[in-house]
Design a protein around this nucleic acid. Structure first.
Length: 517
RNA sequence: GGCAGGGUAGCUCAGCUGGUUAGAGCACGGCACUCAUAAUGCCGGGGUCGCGGGUUCGAGUCCCGCCCCUGCUACCA
């Protein structure tokens, strides 16, 4: 079981490039594992509680539930358009989630009763935001969002979780599980944090209305609302059906794909919660970077900055967008989005290099072999490609980190090899000489074998276009049903009937006027 | 402020434990070819390797100082 998750998105706006990057990256990993033969369960979803949602709903004059229903529908529509292959979509407002959260908290109360205790939480409270503010949110002693209001020093009686107790456990876990968190830079940051020591965190809030009731009243009889850590993070667990015993069939998760800004929550608070409850920890957390703009403005989950995601997706289609995001934004760091770059990548990589290689190869099989793929034995081209695919594999399976951009780079090395091979062999010349018939067939068979592998290895990133190429190659079944390794290596296209179709990545269409640099 | 990581061709970056004329892709220029989405292949122009010292026969690659950028430095999801 390969259980992979993305962070759940906060329901206070429309999906943007940052949301999309994370889903696309995780989707590629999930699809890759399916094609390895793993039993994959891919979870994404929404975080729908909290003050900001409640306020946004109030501002619109709708109920919070109505608001999040609408937002969730928009997100789901976008993920569908992008070909995200999630098996499940969890929403924290779902009744089953509340049941799971309550069960998790109760389990901690039972196993480690000392881990929950009551204490006063104190901080600067902004009446306008109806929320506590951190130092970074306070500008000149005022709330950045409500500069005219005065911040009040407010204290409230809350449930706390004894996170501090888990420092040594976490340090040991990081030491004994070197691949628990990647990339390396994020791991080092968390190790530094653990060296500093940990403070306990709030588990409930009294002034928060929109959320899951904390299962136990405080000593003065106050039934509070579960604070974010114990509401949002457990979604990965509650999605398995927890506390139904069947949850153990899926838990623990193999991989949490999250943004670098929430690494700490996933690598410190979440593991501590699980350990306190006596539940196994996820195998790994991968913290990806952000999509930036030329000006350096960044997209994070709730930064509120928007590029027209829909426009970017429709410019060259969902698959091209998926490719651009994963190729241009290194999955272990930040990368910039620009229309110019997008255009260059589309033309150079997708249309000219890959699309055209497919086009010219299929056209020659049709022209010189009546559309039937001739026989041919694997040769030095296959061997060279195999070395590139070995690197592809390492990038996709996380062996040295989920460097998806390197996986794509590797595939494109095989594409370049194919184009070079065609020019060197010049099949159009061989075709003019009947005595060169065997050589011609060998060349064309080699090209088709290359395309088979390219289609398969690109299927996780270009699910729809790879399938279309598969169809044009006259290959049986679906490209997504292929299995990496021996089965793919043994696949012989001899006798397939190619079906020349439209260009995989057409260039003629005139781009819409860009709205961004 | 502290800790960490960076500043290499127009752009994005590779350059391992110091060693012949500093590399790749894209972009740009020329040539070749015609199967192909005027695509592809080949060749080429282009870099004070952030700045200043130092060690060394020799430094992008080590040491010191400085400048600049980014991340982290916990209760916003």
């Amino acid at each position: 079981m390969f259980y992979i998750t993305t962070a759940i998105d906060y329901a206070n706006g429309d999906p943007h490039l940052g949301h999309a990057l994370e889903k696309i990256g995780a989707d590629a990993i999930a699809r890759y594992h399916r094609m390895r033969g793993d039993h994959v369960h891919f979870l994404i979803g929404m975080d729908e509680h909290g003050q900001k949602v409640a306020q946004a709903a109030a501002a619109e004059g709708v109920t919070p539930q109505a608001l999040v229903d609408r937002v969730a529908a928009r997100f789901q529509a976008m993920w569908e358009r992008l070909g995200i292959s999630n098996d499940q979509f969890i929403r924290t407002t779902a009744p089953e989630h509340a049941i799971g959260v309550k069960a998790l908290i109760e389990r901690i109360f039972e196993r480690n009763p000392d881990d929950f205790y009551e204490k006063t939480y104190a901080g600067w409270y902004c009446v306008g935001c109806e929320a506590f503010k951190t130092d970074s949110e306070i500008v000149n002693g005022q709330c950045g969002l409500h500069p005219t209001r005065t911040l009040e020093w407010v204290e409230e009686w809350n449930w706390f979780f004894r996170l501090s107790r888990y420092r040594d456990f976490l340090r040991t876990h990081f030491a004994t599980h070197p691949t628990f968190l990647g990339p390396e830079s994020r791991r080092n940051e968390i190790l530094a944090l653990l060296d500093q020591g940990l403070e306990d965190v709030s588990a409930s809030r009294s002034r928060l209305g929109w959320g899951i009731p904390f299962p136990r009243a405080t000593r003065d009889g106050d039934l509070q609302t579960t604070y974010v850590w114990f509401d949002a993070l457990p979604n990965y667990l509650t999605a398995t059906g927890y506390p139904d015993p069947s949850y153990s069939a899926r838990w623990p998760a193999q991989l949490h794909v999250v943004g670098k800004d929430i690494t700490r929550f996933h690598c410190v608070i979440w593991p501590a919660m699980l350990h306190s409850a006596g539940l196994p920890l996820p195998a790994a957390v991968w913290a990806h970077g952000f999509v930036t703009l030329a000006g350096g403005e960044r997209f994070s989950k709730s930064a509120g900055v928007h590029v027209e995601l829909a426009e970017a997706v429709e410019r060259y289609g969902p698959d091209a967008f998926r490719y651009f995001m994963l190729r241009e934004v290194p999955f272990d760091g930040d990368g910039a989005f620009s229309w110019e770059r997008f255009g260059e990548r589309y033309t150079a990589d997708l249309a000219n290099a890959f699309g055209n290689l497919a086009s010219r190869s299929i056209a020659m099989v049709e022209r010189y072999c009546a559309g039937v793929v001739p026989a041919g034995e694997p040769n030095e081209i296959d061997a060279a490609d195999a070395a590139d695919y070995a690197r592809y594999r390492e990038a996709m399976d996380g062996t040295r980190g989920y460097l998806l951009q390197d996986a794509l780079r590797s595939v494109w090395l095989t594409v370049a090899r194919g184009n070079e091979y065609v020019d060197r062999q010049a099949p159009w010349k061989l075709a003019k000489d009947p005595t060169q018939r065997t050589a011609l067939e060998r060349v064309l068979a080699t090209l088709i074998r290359q395309l088979i592998r390219q289609a398969a290895h690109l299927a996780p990133v270009l699910p729809e276009r790879a399938e279309e190429l598969w169809r044009q190659l006259g290959a049986p079944g679906s490209v997504h049903a292929q299995r990496f390794g021996a089965p793919l290596a043994a696949l012989d296209p001899t006798g397939w009937r190619v079906i020349r179709g439209d260009s995989l990545f057409p260039k003629e269409r005139e781009p819409v006027a860009p709205s961004l640099p």
